[in-house]
Design a protein around this nucleic acid. Structure first.
Lengths: 184, 184
DNA sequence: GTGATTAGTTATCAGCGAATAACAACCACG
DNA sequence: CGTGGTTGTTATTCGCTGATAACTAATCAC
């Protein structure tokens, strides 16, 4: 059985992708490096070898998530450089909830200084990018991010998104007010 | 050395208070029952005895946080039954960040069915209560909670609150738009 | 006071999880 | 072909963590 070998760079990417899935589900402390390893089809010690530590793996994952979101927004702004335009991109982000939820977990783990630093830097960058792309005022940007956080949290709670639970009355109530995610 | 004994009920309360502090810092998976026990000045096995399991302890903590927030809002509404009135109560909630942050951790841990259920029930209750107390429309309530989530997350990130980090330009930018938390 | 109940402890375990060490396969290239 | 660097593995360790068991001590009812 001749194993397919990848370059360290390729594995790095694969592992970050796997880590995104895993950490989005379990959070930083709640996810094991072995889960990530299995998801990527690699042995656990190799994950540690490539990233040095679990924390470094998480940091890489958070940075990756930030970069991905930034990319999506830049792409969206190329078509419609307004908050409304970026809001549409949020649709897709919610469909693959992992990017947003991993950031959410980062916020939760911000007690750890290294993680806190990474997560603030990531969020600050996104804020700056959004304002640059759309020319929004500080108030508008704030509202944009506030709504984004609400949506992210609703997604994490399974009120919103692909694997949402049976909707309760109050959920329908909130969902009804959201910028319709199903129409164009 | 004659130990002071408490009723199980009293210990229960003390432990939930300690758990609130501990879980707010470390999250569900990132906090040990021993940390909670030490914080309450009790042995770790006793915590398990009283609550049955770590998960039950966390659930009790989340429910407690929800109840506390509801109480604060009811008290605030007694003076000014508007969203603005409840917004003022948010000030105090942020000062003792634990209540909000523990809920945030609950959202992150919502993958666990039991925790997800508890956290949705808690959030749904708060939403209903806020609308009842203020007579706000669904849109207004949504905006209120969105802003609340933003503030909570900024608190978790140490952008806002007692132990905030050295402010970066983008932080000052956002903070400047927030309903001034320092004035009346 | 004494027996039963309730509040708490110490001792211990079984399993997990991150990290290390040592080894093995693969590939490039002179 | 063989040698050195790169990609990976398996074996192992050691600290931690939730949970159980068995025991101790304060308090209550009468």
């Amino acid at each position: 059985m001749t194993r397919t070998r990848f370059t360290a760079q390729e594995r790095h990417g694969q592992l970050v992708t796997a880590a995104l899935q895993a950490f989005a589900l379990g959070g930083y402390a709640g996810t094991t490096t072995d889960q990530v390893a299995r998801l990527a089809g690699v042995s656990q010690p190799y994950v540690i070898r490539l990233f040095g530590s679990k924390q470094e793996l998480f940091l890489a994952t958070v940075r990756h998530a930030g970069d991905q979101i930034e990319m999506k927004w830049r792409a969206a702004a190329a078509e419609e450089p307004t908050l409304r335009g970026l809001g549409h991109a949020y649709k897709e982000l919610l469909a693959e909830r992992e990017l947003l939820i991993v950031l959410l977990h980062g916020f939760g783990a911000a007690e750890d200084p290294a993680i806190g630093e990474a997560v603030r830097s990531c969020y600050g960058n996104l804020y700056t990018v959004v304002r640059e792309l759309t020319g929004a005022t500080a108030e508008e940007a704030r509202d944009f991010f506030a709504m984004g956080m609400l949506i992210t949290v609703l997604g994490a709670m399974r009120v919103l998104g692909p694997d949402a639970v049976e909707p309760q009355p109050w959920m329908a109530d909130i969902l009804g007010t959201l910028p319709r995610p199903d129409t164009d």
